[in-house]
Amino acid sequence: MTEKTSPAPKKTAGAFDIRNIIGALLGLYGVILLLAGIFGDTASAKTGGVNANLWTGLALLVVSVIFLGWARLKPIVVPADVEPVADDPTRPAPRHRH
């Protein structure tokens, strides 16, 4: 009998993926603006009769869902083994403390 070895699970960036951070921030701002648009003053005289907070909040929530979905569907895979970097002449030398 031969045993099939399953490949090691791929490690992803997870919460450190910038798309998750951007999506969460846009979602937070979207919720705040949505609540301000629903419960706050609409200031319709300044915006030509449009509830700008409500529509901007909805747009931010849609973009937030797109970012979070993108990060979920196509995660960034972190390589298991990373080759050591050879000496790079353009990189500044480390400073040694005396």
Rank of each mutant, 00 (worst) to 15 (best):
T2H: 07
K4L: 13
K4F: 12
T5Q: 14
T5G: 10
S6N: 12
S6D: 03
P7W: 00
P9H: 12
P9D: 02
K11H: 15
K11N: 14
T12R: 02
T12W: 05
A13L: 14
A13H: 00
G14N: 15
G14Y: 14
A15M: 14
F16Y: 14
I18G: 08
R19H: 02
R19T: 06
N20R: 13
I21Y: 02
I22D: 07
I22W: 03
G23Y: 15
L26Q: 01
G27N: 03
G27C: 06
G30D: 01
V31P: 04
V31D: 01
L34W: 13
L34K: 00
L35E: 14
G37Y: 10
F39Y: 15
F39I: 05
G40A: 07
D41C: 01
T42Q: 15
T42D: 11
A43M: 10
A43T: 08
A43Y: 10
S44Q: 11
S44I: 15
S44D: 15
S44V: 13
A45E: 13
T47E: 00
T47Q: 04
T47M: 06
T47H: 13
V50P: 00
N51I: 11
N51P: 12
N51E: 13
L54P: 02
L54K: 02
L54C: 02
L54M: 02
G57H: 07
L58A: 07
A59K: 12
L61D: 00
V62Q: 07
V62H: 12
V63C: 07
V63F: 14
V65I: 10
I66N: 04
I66P: 04
F67K: 00
F67E: 00
F67R: 03
L68I: 04
L68E: 06
L68T: 03
L68G: 03
G69R: 00
G69C: 03
G69T: 13
W70V: 11
A71R: 10
A71M: 05
L73D: 01
L73A: 12
K74V: 09
K74S: 10
P75E: 01
P75Y: 04
I76W: 09
I76T: 15
I76D: 11
I76R: 14
A80L: 12
D81L: 04
V82I: 11
V82N: 04
P84N: 05
P84Q: 08
V85N: 01
V85K: 07
A86Q: 08
A86T: 13
A86F: 07
D87N: 09
D87K: 11
D88T: 05
T90N: 09
R91Q: 02
P92C: 06
P94F: 08
R95V: 13
R95D: 08
H96A: 02
H96M: 03
R97D: 04
R97E: 04
R97A: 01
H98E: 11
